[in-house]
């Protein structure tokens, strides 16, 4: 429950900011005037029907999707359009994908240490030490020398979370992290995410897991047709949504 968590998002300390973001996919207006602020330590959960633009919005933040107009800032710094500045910018924004996207011919340990070593320039010993700590933290410490194909879906996703954490990002984006998992693995991954949330990690989570949204979110963003329709704390959103769209969405998932 949010009221039980030991942390409080600092007022005014904005880590992610989207200003008037617009995007089209051909004729489809994928994002309409998106304005969003995520405070340091805040857990923002994005809900909405399929095709509402949740994932697209998530992917614009580290520029895996480009935008047509508007502004995106991380920790006050505008997102660079390309080149070295963009690559550096991305190291500060962690990302966890629906399909894990682990490097299939590298061990789990190598998956986690590759970017810290090659991009951040950490020594092998430092990177591996940190990676082993992270693997222990997400509960798969015994899998360091396994290959991704030898892991279950839940273990793979937890490895992917460890890989994102190893970069010490300012925020982690979760793009439907449990949509490819069976119910049991889903609970394992959600437990790991809950642990991060309680530890103060800034998170933007696109998900269909209402239980996670209710118990872990500081704020719910509800999207439909490429626009943010509501932004409210979970209690307000789930008990008294403002819009008809949100009411019909909630009645369909309950």
């Amino acid at each position: 429950m949010p009221e039980n968590t030991p942390r409080q998002p600092t007022e005014g300390d904005i880590v992610v900011e989207l200003r008037a973001v617009e995007k089209h996919f051909g004729a489809l207006h994928a994002l309409r005037n998106i304005n969003l602020r995520v405070k340091r330590g805040e857990v923002v959960v994005v809900l909405g029907p399929s095709g509402s633009g949740k994932s697209t919005m998530c992917r614009t933040i580290n520029r895996l999707e480009t935008i047509d107009s508007g502004e995106i800032l991380v920790d006050g710094a505008p997102q660079p359009a390309e080149g070295k500045e963009l690559f550096k910018f991305r190291t500060e924004v962690g990302m966890v994908f629906q399909s894990f996207n682990l490097f299939s011919n590298r061990t789990i340990l190598d998956n986690i240490t590759l970017a810290p070593r090659k991009i951040l320039g950490q020594s092998k010993a430092d990177a591996e030490g940190r990676a082993r700590d992270l693997l222990d933290m997400v509960g798969i410490g015994s899998k360091a020398n396994s290959y991704p194909a030898q892991l279950s879906g839940g273990q793979s996703q937890r490895a992917a979370i460890a890989r994102a954490l190893a970069m010490n990002p300012k925020v982690i984006l979760f793009d439907e992290p449990t949509s490819a998992l069976d119910p049991e693995s889903t609970q394992d991954v959600l437990a790991t995410m809950r642990q991060l949330a309680e530890g103060g990690t800034t998170m933007l989570v696109v998900t269909h897991e209402m239980s996670f949204a209710k118990s872990c979110a500081d704020r719910i963003i509800f999207m439909a047709d490429g626009a943010i329709i509501e932004s409210a704390d979970p209690e307000t959103f789930f008990s008294a949504p403002n819009s008809e769209r949100a009411r019909s969405f909630l009645s369909s998932v309950h």
Partner: peptide
């Protein structure tokens, strides 16, 4: 393409991505 996307998200430019993975 998922692995390539993960590389980009981790801050790999085209050259280090080619070289290291």
């Amino acid at each position: 393409t998922g692995e390539l996307e993960a590389l980009r998200a981790l801050g790999f430019g085209p050259r280090p991505a080619m070289q290291h993975l």
